[in-house]
């Protein structure tokens, strides 16, 4: 299902782009290996490791037990001693099983050791609601990771970004979380065959605009673009910025945009209350207060666990209509 087959226009699915990125890393880095649940023989529950064990061997692509503490700990110990592990944490929700290894070991070892340890560990993990997987397999928990000094985190929203950001993550000498979105797996997009890296520090202006700024990440980038297209008829020409990487965050690009547009909305799929959008809103008001013509808006999920029923879930996950409604309410139009 996930085999990276190039079409004429060299269009790949998101899942095939992930696969190609991991293949690229395993080829270019002899000390890289991949480890995770079901990734070897089965190719991963979402298929993005398809064929990699057959290609690289069972001593490069490892099936692990269902042991998330063990998987992250494996990465810490191996990463600190000369390997470059690519770990698969099947669902981001499973961070609860290994938060000590993430927060107290992986994130802090370098600092606690006075800079003496490098931890070149890449963690691929799957977030996102919309598939009726309910409360424990649908969350967007990027704020948990953003709050941990020592870890980087990016959230690719297209096949192109998935390949380029995974390659950057794996080349980085720090722990990097690559948060993928399960509702984007079948999404198609152009992906160059050659190897390329997208820097883990630079936002992407997905849609230029003149009088409004929407900052969105993960799958919400596409909803934000759809919202921007709808808002055009209302006289709102929205610039959509995808930070791509949340830590480090490209504050400069966002602030520069807001200084031009004077109004801003932050959109994320995660629960709105206490979400990372609050941090971005705060940074904007600290750095561009005098430029603002309206309070900074935020769109996010309600303050509840992700519900199971499609009838509830479709109202739970933010979409273009919710963004449009938020902008209209904010601007009184």
């Amino acid at each position: 299902m996930a085999e990276a087959v190039a079409t004429k226009a060299r269009t790949l699915t998101y899942v095939a782009a992930i696969n190609e990125a991991v293949r690229t890393v395993l080829k270019e880095q002899p000390n890289a290996f991949a480890a995770g649940e079901d990734i070897g023989g089965a190719g991963g529950v979402y298929g993005y490791f398809h064929g990699l064990q057959a290609e690289f061997g069972a001593d490069r692509v490892y099936d692990t037990p269902i042991s998330e503490k063990g998987i992250i700990g494996l990465g810490v110990g191996a990463g600190a001693t000369g390997c470059r592990p690519i770990l698969d944490l099947m669902f981001m929700d499973f961070m609860g099983e290994c938060m000590d290894e993430i927060a107290n070991q992986l994130a802090k070892m370098r600092y606690m050791f006075g800079g003496a340890a490098n931890l070149p560990v890449t963690v691929l993990t799957m977030a996102g609601a919309g598939a009726s997987l309910a409360a424990q397999h649908s969350q967007s928990l990027e704020a948990w990771v953003c709050h941990l000094p020592g870890v980087k985190i990016c959230m690719p929203c297209t096949p192109y970004d998935a390949k380029g950001l995974i390659i950057s993550a794996a080349r980085d000498d720090n722990p990097v979380f690559v948060v993928l979105n399960k509702m984007s797996l079948a999404m198609k997009g152009e992906v160059p065959e050659e190897t390329y890296a997208i820097p883990l520090s630079k936002a992407n202006i997905v849609r230029p605009g003149s009088n409004y700024t929407i900052v969105a990440w993960g799958r919400m980038v596409h909803e934000a673009v759809a919202a921007a297209n709808k808002l055009k008829d209302l006289g709102v020409d929205a610039e959509v910025i995808d930070p791509r990487t949340l830590q480090p965050f490209d504050t400069a690009t966002v602030v520069q945009s807001v200084k031009k547009t004077h109004r801003a909305m932050i959109v994320h799929e995660a629960v709105r209350f206490g979400g990372f959008g609050g941090e971005i809103a705060s940074q904007i008001q600290e750095l561009a207060f005098d430029y603002l013509d309206a309070p900074i808006g935020r769109v996010g999920a309600p303050f509840s666990p992700v519900p199971f029923s499609p009838a509830l879930e479709k109202h739970y996950v933010p979409n273009a209509d919710a963004i449009v409604a938020g902008v209209k309410a904010q601007l009184g139009i």
């Binding site: 063990g70 700990g73 494996l74 110990g77 592990p85 000590d100 107290n104 070991q105 606690m112």
Partner: peptide, 27 residues
């Protein structure tokens, strides 16, 4: 800790060490 001596740290978390040692052995 001292990485040059192969000492991957005392650990403030009880049970913090075993997964890391396993990872070092894997390496």
């Amino acid at each position: 800790s001292n990485m040059k001596l192969g000492m991957l740290g005392a650990n403030g978390i009880v049970g913090g060490g075993p997964p890391i040692a396993m990872g070092a052995a894997f390496s």
